[in-house]
Amino acid sequence: MSTTEHNSHNAHSEHSEYIDSDTGKMGMWLFLFTEIFLFGGLFIVYAVMRSKYGEDFHQAALELNAFIGATNTVVLLVSSMTVAMSLTAIQKDQKNLAIGLIFFTILLAGVFLVNKYFEYGHKFSLNLYPGSDVMRNLPHGEIMFFGLYFLMTGLHLFHVVVGGILLTIIIFKIKSGRINKEHFLLHENGALYWHLVDLIWIFLFPLLYLIT
């Protein structure tokens, strides 16, 4: 039993400063489940609205730039691979390669953001954003479509940023040796999170850009 001075925070910290890998990974997966259901709510709205306004959705989707959408899809898929490879690298103790690959992943995230910047910028230049007069005067289905478009991609964008921050932290931890060949739970979880960002986009892309 601990003494008054004893400052240990939990059962794990007595044995190891690392959380057990299976435990930590399961925690991450469960967290991803909640993310799926978070987006799930929006997908339900999408499904209902689309079933109601198929034709309007069709029209509205023509406004989106499928080329940028496709580019971003490729960017995210490649980044998913590089982050998966970085995990291979750390397991093989190739520290610098791992850092390089994560760095590249973050770079791709940056590309994604720049693309989105232009995409949103274009919409704003047309005065097409939630609450704008232009948008209010569109047919009902198109209002719904653009509302969903902004909310879904916006929430996704937020996840890209969070994922980028997480990956940056991981780079620092690899550098400092906290993440290494033996202990890479955080790295694994960061990669899982990044793949989720990709997964969501895999559905967003066809549903928003490809229904023309």
């Binding site: 690392y18 291979t88 397991q91 890479f184």
Partner: peptide, 18 residues
């Protein structure tokens, strides 16, 4: 204690998946 029995996915497989 951890990560010892983890599976390592090869670079090649990752690439093929992409």
């Amino acid at each position: 204690m951890d990560n010892h029995d983890s599976h390592i996915t090869s670079y090649a497989l990752n690439f093929k998946v992409l």
